[in-house]
Amino acid sequence: MLKRFFVLFEPFILTLLGTVILASILPPRGGAVPVFETIADAAIVLLFFLHGAKLSREAILAGAKNWRLHLAVFASTYILFPIFGLGIAALPFLAPPVAAGLLFLTLLPSTVQSSIAFTAIARGNVAAAVCSASFSNLVGIVLTPALAALLIRSGGSASISLSSIETILLQLLLPFVLGHLLRPVIGSFVARQKRLVTMVDRGSILLVVYTAFGAAVVGGIWHQLSGGSLAVILAVCSVLLALVLLATWGAGKLMGLSREDAIVLVFCGSKKSLVSGVPMAGVLFPPAQVGLVILPLMLFHQLQLIACAVIARRYADDPIT
């Protein structure tokens, strides 16, 4: 029980909440804004460079044979989720930036670390989880901005421009590709520096969240968003997660997947990446809107950790499930 408590409320989640509070009390202003933006951009470039260096071709090739499972995870991530997202974005009571944020959330790739970790806890096919999660993130660097440009319409208060797509390709895709090309040279070093990679992972997110929420606070986010609005966003995210978890569980049954592979589909097919989503939102959306746009993602991220921690424990304790 104590382990579950720490899974649900890990230090990073508390630090993330603390960053939002700090940005609400002491947002960057004036000359500090471009300084924080530059530091955040540099951290994001380093983040995707390191992710490229970490990507193992051997793991992808080893798991690529299980194409039915990977196709199911891909369909959940980039077809089922966006369909739900389009329905959510059409709800009339959501403010345009929030609706855009909820739709953007559904276009993101799956997580890597937590998908693999929960698959391992649940005694699923870890090799297949590595392949599916890595492939989802690799494709997402290009596919997520393309889907955002296609589905997040202009005319509201949040939209995607072609210049944003160009920026994300240069700021995210290029460092990722360079890191992967240099993997034979620096791969072993990166693999040994797990603490450094984790610090870059989490530090870049915190920097972007602080910068984004700071800009949103200066722009009056807490005057635009009431407690009732927060409750609505949380409820929508909860329903979305429940629907996708049920859909991936049911799909595993219908496809006749083994228990180990069905676990991969549930965990890889139901998650959305905070690591990829926050930097992408910072590039794709105007600074004054990023805070509202990433708020649903942060809430969804916490919900998916809680739900998947419980589900993973249930799988581990009941091998017949």
Rank of each mutant, 00 (worst) to 15 (best):
K3Q: 08
R4M: 13
F5Q: 13
F9S: 08
E10V: 02
E10H: 13
F12R: 04
I13Q: 13
L14E: 10
L16T: 15
L16P: 04
L17C: 14
L17V: 15
A23E: 10
S24M: 11
I25L: 15
P27T: 08
P28F: 01
P28T: 01
G30Q: 00
V33A: 11
P34I: 07
P34R: 09
V35F: 12
I39N: 08
A42K: 13
A42D: 07
I44D: 13
F49D: 05
A53P: 04
L55C: 08
E58H: 00
I60S: 06
L61Q: 07
G63V: 00
N66Y: 02
W67G: 04
L69Y: 06
A72T: 09
V73C: 15
S76I: 02
F81A: 14
F84S: 13
L86A: 13
A89T: 10
A89V: 05
A90L: 14
F93R: 11
P96M: 02
A100H: 08
G101S: 12
F104C: 08
F104Q: 14
L107M: 13
L108A: 14
T111A: 12
S114H: 00
T119W: 00
A122G: 05
A127S: 06
A128L: 09
S136H: 01
L138S: 09
V139Q: 03
T144R: 09
P145C: 07
L151D: 06
I160H: 11
S161V: 02
S164F: 00
L169T: 15
L170D: 01
L170C: 09
L173S: 10
L174V: 15
L178Y: 02
G179L: 01
H180R: 09
I186T: 04
I186N: 03
S188K: 14
F189L: 15
F189M: 12
R192E: 14
V197C: 10
T198N: 12
T198S: 15
T198I: 09
V200G: 08
L207S: 06
V217R: 00
V217A: 12
G219Y: 00
W222T: 12
W222A: 08
W222H: 03
Q224F: 01
S229G: 14
V232R: 11
A235D: 01
V236A: 10
V236T: 09
S238H: 07
S238A: 14
S238E: 03
L240I: 09
A242R: 07
A242I: 12
A247Y: 08
T248P: 01
L254C: 10
M255D: 03
G256L: 02
L257V: 14
R259Y: 09
V264M: 03
L265W: 03
F267H: 01
G269H: 03
L274M: 15
G277W: 05
G277M: 03
P279V: 01
A281R: 06
G282T: 06
F285S: 03
P287Q: 02
G291H: 02
I294H: 07
L295W: 00
P296K: 07
P296R: 06
M298N: 11
F300T: 10
Q304D: 04
A307G: 02
C308S: 11
I311H: 04
R313W: 00
R313T: 13
A316Y: 05
D318P: 01
